Amino acid sequence: MAGEPQPSGAPTKGGWITFPFLIATMAGLTIAAGGWTNNIIVYLINEFNIKRIDAAQIANIVNGCTTLFPILGAILADSFFGSFTIISVSSLISLAGILLINLTAILDTLKPAPCENGSTVCMAPSKTQLAILYTSLALSSMGLAGTRFTLATMGADQFDDPKHQGVFFNWHFFTMYAGILVSVVGIVYVEDNVGWGLGYGLCVAANLIGLAIFVAGKPYYRLMKPQSSPFTGLACVIVAAFRKRKVLLSSKSEDYWQETQARGTKFVKTTPTNSFK
């Protein structure tokens, strides 16, 4: 997912000066994301009176989205908008989502009445309350997916030496797992023992601080121009193969994949065999 370097004559950017901005951003966003994802099942059961199996299904959908959506974020960053724009917008989206979750924890009108002690019948959330809840989870999931690995790609783009890139990746993933540990131990404890409003409020603060630090480092970043993504090329191949599924095979080798060299054209593939077809 590397992009195109800046043209010659442009001010030199990138390097280790960008390291503290990117690592601090990773720490803030990871703590914010871990604070709401790692305890979401308990929140749905205790605060929204959602059945355990339904809460688990919602959590599985959230985990699936945060696992698959980074592919879309990578395509948008590589082919259209660049990593900086995608990370900035995704951080804003996640901030809006976590803030909305925090409001559901603070405002009684955004969640059903709590169950009475010893009662087996609890009031279910209204359609409006569920709509707000699902919107907050969707925004938070999309924001998390757009920053999780795009931030690593942008960090690697700041270095030309592969050894320096390796050091950055080591610190990047160390920071990510350390942030998860802090959120699981610290923020989840606050949510369970102090209050959901304060716990999610800490997530909002962590996300906001991470976004502010990331934007503050923009003058030092080496911003790569969007080029193309391997996923875009793969999609084009699939579409072309489907559209040409009834086309008869040509017996001419020049109708197939070829490489253009300085001294002419070199054919590197011949007519596909029946077994290859």
Rank of each mutant, 00 (worst) to 15 (best):
M1V: 12
M1W: 07
A2L: 14
Q6K: 04
P7D: 13
A10S: 15
P11M: 13
P11G: 08
P20K: 01
M26C: 11
A27I: 10
L29E: 08
I31P: 00
W36A: 00
T37E: 03
T37P: 01
T37M: 06
N38A: 15
N46C: 02
N46M: 06
N49I: 04
N49D: 00
I50F: 02
R52L: 13
R52G: 15
A55W: 12
A55S: 15
A55T: 10
A55R: 11
A56N: 14
Q57F: 15
I61T: 13
N63H: 12
T67V: 11
T67S: 13
T67H: 06
L68M: 07
F69D: 01
P70S: 11
P70G: 04
P70C: 07
I75F: 14
L76Q: 08
A77S: 14
A77L: 07
A77V: 05
F80H: 12
F80S: 05
I87S: 02
V89Y: 06
S90I: 04
S91P: 07
L92A: 13
I93A: 04
I98K: 01
I98S: 01
L99W: 10
L103R: 05
L103W: 05
T104N: 00
I106L: 11
L107Q: 08
L110N: 01
K111R: 15
P112H: 03
P112S: 06
P112A: 03
P112C: 03
E116T: 06
N117M: 09
S119L: 09
T120W: 07
C122N: 05
C122Q: 05
M123R: 11
M123S: 13
A124Y: 05
S126W: 05
K127H: 11
Q129T: 06
L130T: 08
S136F: 03
S136C: 02
L139K: 00
S140H: 05
S140A: 15
L144Y: 10
A145R: 00
G146D: 04
T147K: 03
T147M: 10
T150D: 12
A152P: 02
M154Q: 14
F159N: 09
D160M: 03
P162G: 03
K163I: 12
V167E: 10
F168K: 02
W171K: 06
H172F: 15
F173C: 00
F174L: 14
M176W: 07
G179P: 06
I180G: 06
I180P: 02
S183E: 05
G186C: 11
Y189D: 10
V190C: 02
D192M: 04
N193S: 13
V194Q: 08
V194P: 08
G195T: 02
L198Q: 01
Y200D: 00
G201N: 01
L202M: 10
L202C: 07
L202Y: 04
L202A: 07
C203N: 05
V204F: 03
A205N: 01
A206C: 03
A206Y: 00
N207A: 14
L208C: 11
L211V: 08
I213P: 06
A216W: 06
G217Q: 09
Y220L: 12
R222P: 04
R222T: 12
P230C: 07
L234Q: 12
A235P: 04
A235K: 14
C236P: 04
A240I: 08
F242V: 14
F242Q: 12
R245A: 13
L248T: 13
S250H: 03
S251E: 14
K252D: 14
D255Q: 08
R263F: 12
G264E: 05
T265H: 05
K266G: 01
T270S: 14
T271K: 08
T271P: 07
S275M: 09
